[in-house]
Amino acid sequence: MSEAVSALGNASFEGFATVRELGPMGMITLRARHDLPALTKALQKVLKAELPERRRIVSAGEVRVGWMSPDELLILLPHADVTARVAALTKALGTAHALVTDVSDARCLFAIEGERAAEVLMKLAPVDLAALEPGELRRTRVAQVAAAFWAEEGGFRLVAFRSVAAYVMGLLAHSAQPGSELFPA
């Protein structure tokens, strides 16, 4: 049995902010209407997590549940737990119309850390970082690819598609180059 590997083998870059590729991270896409009572119950039962409000990401221990659209959640959890949790969520949702599927290997995850981490994202995403609310999950693009990010302790987490992980790493490293800070110290 081979071990799963992340797209970039946890590559990192030290600039005016630190960029690290994380993972492998367990990720589950759960599609269901958010007003479905079975959904709230399933999240509570299987993950001990609340249903996030619109555009929010909530945490429950090691688990994060992010609002992706009115009928889609992204669940982040330890990679080893994915298979069991997919099964448990599917079971908990019962006959309700829902789709639960493992997307761990379809994505890549980055940490952008340091006091100036926001400046890295300001160069890539058409998003007002100053207006990003606490616990907000923002889906947008970074340069030419889709991405989602949110603030975490010490900086940001960013999720993108696996096939473009090297491109995203290139973007983040280019944007974190020492000397390219956007604001004076």
Partner: peptide
């Protein structure tokens, strides 16, 4: 109208 984001054209 779904997620409330004021998206610029490049996100659409």
């Amino acid at each position: 109208p779904y997620c409330g984001v004021k998206a610029e054209e490049t996100e659409l």
